[in-house]
Design a protein around this nucleic acid. Structure first.
Lengths: 197, 197, 197, 197
DNA sequence: CATGAATGAGAATTCATTCAT
DNA sequence: TATGAATGAATTCTCATTCAT
């Protein structure tokens, strides 16, 4: 039900939060970006912090929904892991600004609001852990610490926003494949897709 | 040549920056923590931002030095990787506050100063990449994108500060072993240390 | 000639001004109370301040009219005083919200408008003074400073809104009788109505 | 322990609050009055509201202390009442600005802070009521509703700030005598001090 | 060394009012 | 008549930094 102006403001905020950081972005900056007076912004937002909350909320929700969808399929565990990595990185890169705000700026949220994002983030870790537990149960994965492994994989994926830039590099899918290959096959084993052929 | 007072101030700042974030920490907060007046702090620091720079600089330098030391040994590539992961996670966890400030708050540095940290961070990525390239050259690693793999591993390791808490979990070394195991052997291969026995 | 909507708005304003004070009441609050949008209010009012002026004006006018009516009778001076006190307190209590706004909030009026209320208030003091002067002239009252006495009585009566609450206390008329009794007979003389009988 | 600057600021605030009202006085106004920058004020005050609280607190405390001192003497009840009226009006007039702020502006205090003043004000009413109860017990006063009578007297006294101006009128003591005379002897009885002689 | 007064720029937010639709 | 978007000025308060003592 967000009006155009609301979307416009959220987009401007995402852009500025990504560029300068939440704290270094003033409400004036956002107003300037959308061509409104500072005061007029408050027809659309509750507070600057609320704007950040909304952005972060939408971002983490998309990650959660995507991963839940993968879990709901009847793929094998390795297939799910590959797909989950692919999804995460693709979304990360195509919504790089939003992802950056989620991962870098959400900590600036005050306490009741920060917890909302924290809870959804915990949920995301749980879903990743489920992927690994499924594989462990089926014998497809050799995992004794599924949660720690999930956090390792998630960490690798969440770091992408810090280094990925479009500049003449691998596509998100290619990055995802490099990641999945290592996660599944390791660096020292022989069964690598590129190598096998 | 840092005096006791300077160290004390840096420690207070690290603690507060970790707890509340750089922006939410006022110079007054730091002064209170060390039992000085706000004005007196400026006998020891140039600016709040400079304090952050020093903390981040020291942190990233330690990571760099440790990794360089590993590279300077004559271990095999897999051994180096294992050692590097072990070092990174151990240091991360034992200096959790400092590491948190480095990874979460350094972005708040203004431009000339942020670049200093960025350059050292790039250097750190280079060193990791060297580990992988060594393994690739020697045939020990099956890696076609050593830098991307380095970034994956680094991302996994850099994420640890976000979830590791002392509370009844694995030790840093155990976490490091879980990580290395996956990086080297993958989730699907059979040659896992824990499994072999 | 006030329309229903205008009356409704004035009532809402009185209620809110009494509860929260004039400054703490926003035009939005009033709009919410009557179920209109902020902008729509301005079809009915000139300004928030004008609303306050109207409320205060109506209130002080009623006090003046009532007192003038008493003066216009051919009662004795003591009877007039008793009646005036009774009127004032009765009206005060039955229109407590309006009276509160008049006595507590009218000061918030800006200068040209505040003077309107001030003049009517001065008039009210004059009327009270007339009651006392009548009694002085007729020898019924022993008064050498009729205006000061008028102000004492008025002060006592105007204070009622600060403490009178319906909660199981005297009725307004009973309060008025306690007041008049003291004003007429004093605390130490022997001729008190209740005592004589 | 208030420094000179703190007193100076409080005095400036009292003056401005009395002249323009609390809400119409900006922190800027106060800063201008004492010749400081807006921000510098905050070395001395917690908030604008706190400034108001302090002023009101000091004022009501003085009234309470004075009345308690009268109660602690061994005067007769009528003497105590005369003295209490004299004290109240004298203090009222000599600290007219402060008294005005207490009686007119304290309502602007937000809730936890307003209650502090309210409680002290309730205490003041209690003390007045004690004066009347003493007289009732000793038979010196003919009073059946000591609290209501106390409120009448207090109301009369508290109204003084609204009309008393130095301009060629009675002195505070003379006003007090006019008041006491009516309260004690009434308007219609024969035993008035001036009349007896 | 240490203080604490002072700065001054800047922050988020509120709000009465206007006006095109 | 009703809306709600837009204004723009004002407000309180914060804060890193400086400097005379």
């Amino acid at each position: 039900m967000a009006s155009n102006r609301q979307k416009e403001i959220a987009l401007a905020a995402v852009k500025l939060f990504e560029q300068k950081g939440y704290h270094a972005t003033s409400v004036q900056d956002i107003a300037d970006e959308v061509g409104l007076q500072k005061g007029s912004l408050y027809h659309y937002i509750h507070s600057k912090e609320d704007l950040l909350l909304q952005i972060a909320h939408e971002a983490i929700t998309e990650f959660n929904d995507n991963l839940q969808a993968v879990l709901d399929t009847d793929m094998s565990a390795p297939e799910k892991l590959v797909k989950a990595v692919e999804n995460h990185i693709t979304v990360s890169v195509s919504n790089m600004e939003t992802t950056t705000v989620l991962l870098r700026e959400a900590f600036s949220l005050g306490d009741p609001q920060h917890q909302v994002i924290q809870d959804l983030t915990d949920k995301y870790v749980d879903l990743w852990t489920q992927v690994l537990e499924e594989g462990a149960r089926s014998g497809e994965f050799h995992v004794r610490e599924p949660k720690v492994v999930a956090l390792a994989i998630l960490g690798a994926c969440n770091w992408v926003y810090r280094w990925y830039r479009q500049s003449g590099q691998l596509t998100p899918s290619q990055v995802a494949r490099v990641f999945s290959d290592m996660f599944l096959n390791g660096l020292t084993s022989d069964n690598h897709p590129g190598v096998q052929q």
